[in-house]
């Protein structure tokens, strides 16, 4: 009798466990459907980009085209400087990221690890300027860039983006929490502050640089308002502004427009598929600040 008790109780419990599993898989199925619904706009974009024009304008909407066509994609690539837009976007985003990291790092290091009078006040002033929106600066920046002869150059976009204080803010947070023992040891060995920064802090802050770099790159890659004003020569347009030009010229040619949108989303899609976890984690590290 005593022998059978454990197996009996296990049998008694089994249906409940199974019920929980059923509930869990139902939940997952519901979530899965929701995820698919959330993807519908993107799927419909891809669908439209590869459909013959008459089938784009059909009712009811037709998901499976009679044939697959590259005509819209080729039209974008042949009639529009799409690869030029892509290059411009890469230069602007890469330049902004590089310059921002290069100037924010020493400043953040100084605020976090060096003792000097006025540093907290200055830091507070920098951080407060995070609130200044592009819109308030658009008009004066336009005249300033004009005066400097930088209008219609990559620098006109790279410099103001690099002036954003977010990099100083995030890197300072990181450097402040850096353990002091290594730095003290290096100083005892006669290392200067620059030496400490280059030999001790930099090699140990790669995750922070990756997170900030990712944030800056995505920000600059997607920047719209200021690029629209500062880059007006056709050969300088970035992807978002190029797409706007495309839309301006082909108001309702949706095959062409969605092919352009699809092409513009490809690089991001590839990077995201390759580094999904890193991208999402990097976004978390930057703590939810969207400029």
């Amino acid at each position: 009798m005593a022998r059978h008790t454990p197996s009996l109780s296990r049998m008694a419990r089994r249906p409940r466990i199974r019920w929980r599993e059923v509930q869990a898989s139902l939940e997952m199925a519901a979530l899965f459907s929701l995820a698919i619904v959330w993807l519908v706009p993107v799927l419909w974009m891809i669908d439209t980009a590869f459909k013959p024009t008459p089938e784009i304008f059909t009712l009811p909407p037709r998901w499976i085209p009679s044939r697959f066509t590259l005509e819209h994609v080729l039209e974008v690539l042949q009639d529009w400087p799409f690869l030029g837009w892509l290059t411009n976007s890469l230069i602007v985003a890469g330049g902004s990221t590089g310059l921002s990291l290069a100037i924010s790092t020493p400043a953040a290091y100084s605020f976090a690890r060096l003792r000097w009078r006025g540093r907290n006040l200055l830091f507070l002033v920098f951080i407060s300027s995070m609130l200044i929106p592009w819109q308030v600066n658009a008009v004066p920046l336009y005249f300033l860039m004009d005066r400097l002869g930088l209008l219609n150059s990559y620098a006109a976009v790279v410099l103001p983006i690099s002036a954003m204080p977010i990099g100083v803010f995030l890197l300072r947070q990181f450097f402040v929490n850096f353990p002091g023992e290594l730095e003290d040891a290096a100083r005892l060995d006669g290392c200067s502050s620059l030496g400490v920064l280059v030999r001790i802090i930099l090699p140990n802050s790669i995750p922070a640089f990756v997170a900030l770099g990712l944030y800056m790159f995505i920000f600059a890659w997607n920047e719209f308002f200021w690029s629209l004003i500062a880059l007006q020569r056709p050969e300088l347009l970035t992807l978002p502004i190029g797409l706007k030009a495309l839309q301006g010229a082909h108001d309702i040619e949706y095959g062409l427009l969605l092919a352009g949108a699809f092409l513009a989303s490809l690089p991001v899609l590839l990077v995201f598929l390759l580094f999904r976890q890193r991208v999402i984690r990097g976004m978390t590290l930057t703590g939810g600040i969207k400029g």
């Binding site: 995820a35 959330w38 993807l39 706009p41 993107v42 419909w44 974009m45 995505i218 890659w221 997607n222 719209f224 992807l239 978002p240 502004i241 797409l243 706007k244 839309q247 427009l257 969605l258 352009g260 949108a261 513009a264 989303s265 991001v268 899609l269 995201f272 991208v279 999402i280």
Partner: peptide, 15 residues
């Protein structure tokens, strides 16, 4: 769920 955030505003608007 996360992926649309990576698209730029022009792509989102066209879609």
């Amino acid at each position: 769920f996360f992926w649309p955030y990576l698209l730029n505003v022009s792509i989102v608007s066209i879609i």
